[in-house]
Design a protein around this nucleic acid. Structure first.
Lengths: 253, 253
DNA sequence: GGCCTATACTTGTATATACAAGTATGTTAC
DNA sequence: GTAACATACTTGTATATACAAGTATAGGCC
């Protein structure tokens, strides 16, 4: 057991970051890296108290919050365990399409249709809460799953928030991966629709006539500012959104 | 200020329910009832310590969890406030379609197409994790927004979990309202698709030819048992799913 | 007026301690 | 063998206390 614990040498009690938070992060990292596998028993609170030399209440808070986040399961009287399947916190995660495709065992490729600086249309100006006449970066790309188009991405990015966006090579890294690496959103808004694609979309996604698309739009905020507004369009017969998650009392309203 | 507080006479320190939980519930009730309105300042932790005669850490836990749930906002050094807009915990809430429609200012009506006991098909048997040959309740209904059909509901219910489901009058109360009143789900699974409706669906939803539908399926668990499996079909041009919510670190994975 | 400071109040975090209650295991009594 | 019991370990909750740090206000100084 101690072998599991004494690797916690990254807790700094005088760091500005709260201790409970450092502990959460450390455990999360170990789960993400696979060092602690699903179902595996975690050190008990008392083990951690000894190993980290912090109060049990601090450990308890860290573990409790990890439970709420769905990363671990705790059983009264038994112990804490790495959750079998991490709970999805929302129907739509901010997941990189490349990862999503590759996790399903297929191969991902993407084609950048355009990456340019444009004047914001009135609609986009309002949606992104910008001043009139503002310029924006715009990316259009298609993502392929095993050579078959799966997603059409049409993204606007606020240059004030992401000045280097336009200089990136999005054939090497997806825009989602880039943005996730650059910032952590404060707030998100999602909308999901069923639409009939126009001619161009149909061609880009190589869809048959009359087939519908699932269309997801997302706005993402950081510091009260809309950073990106993206429309993701999927062929209805090739894609569905889904999530399974445990509920706590506040997820029902 | 004290007028706000001394109504907390419903805290029972010897009740089996944890005190922090009772406090959460009490505050939640006051917000839900409108007694405490959005933006209003809550009593401070110390106020509540005096009023409820509990430890500040207990109050703190209740308020902290309410913050995570998005019901209140706390500002370091200032105080706690009822959140302006309650955060949506998931894209798809378990919200009663009747409420959703009426909250938008329209009127809701519903028509029950059928409510019967049926043998589970192999597909449904598997989806609901039942034994072969099991019987199920099945409800089919259409929900109208201002006379215009908005949702086609096709629901299977496990009689083992909800024996009285078949005896309800779903012209008076929606199935969602009934089920929410009967139990609190442990777990949910959602899937969202874009589909082309079949002839019958098109007629029930009075849709034009070629228009797509947004289709949501949901399975709901209680005590390791699938209680209900429902398919909700919406006209693509009349409905979209959406949610805006604040993100905490664990909602991104 | 404008600026600084002291002060009071707020939330955020950390600790030590205590008891309750659930789970598993080993032991004893029958 | 089995049932009852004791024990050790676990998480769950509650408390009292302490200090840090952010916010607003009042008062004094220039």
């Amino acid at each position: 057991m101690s072998a599991l614990i004494d690797c916690f040498d990254d807790i700094n009690k005088s760091a500005p970051e709260p201790i409970y938070h450092q502990i959460k992060q450390a455990i999360e990292d170990r789960i993400a890296s696979g060092e602690w596998r699903a179902g595996q028993k975690l050190p008990s609170e008392n083990d951690l108290v000894v190993a980290l030399d912090v109060s049990r209440m601090t450990i308890n808070r860290a573990l409790r919050e990890l439970t709420q986040a769905g990363l671990i399961k705790r059983v009264h009287g038994l112990g804490s365990f790495v959750a079998e399947q991490p709970r999805h916190a929302s129907l739509i995660e901010l997941q990189d399409i490349a990862l999503e495709i590759e996790n399903s065992g297929a191969s991902h490729a993407s084609k950048v249709l355009s990456l340019e600086s444009v004047y914001a249309s009135p609609t986009v100006t309002e949606l992104m809460q910008l001043d009139e006449g503002a310029t924006l970066y715009r990316l259009r790309a298609v993502h392929y799953q095993d050579e078959l188009p799966l997603q059409l991405e049409s993204r606007y990015v606020n240059p004030a928030a992401m000045p280097d966006f336009i200089n990136q090579d999005f054939t090497r890294m997806t825009s989602t991966a880039y943005l996730l690496q650059q910032f952590k959103p404060d707030e998100m808004e999602h909308r999901v629709r069923a639409i009939l694609p126009d001619q161009q979309t149909r061609e880009l996604l190589t869809m048959a006539d009359g087939q519908p698309c699932l269309q997801l739009t997302r706005r993402t905020w950081k510091d009260e500012q809309v950073v990106t507004y993206v429309t993701l369009t999927y062929p209805g017969d090739r894609y569905e959104l889904g999530a399974r998650y445990a509920t706590d009392e506040y997820q029902l309203r």
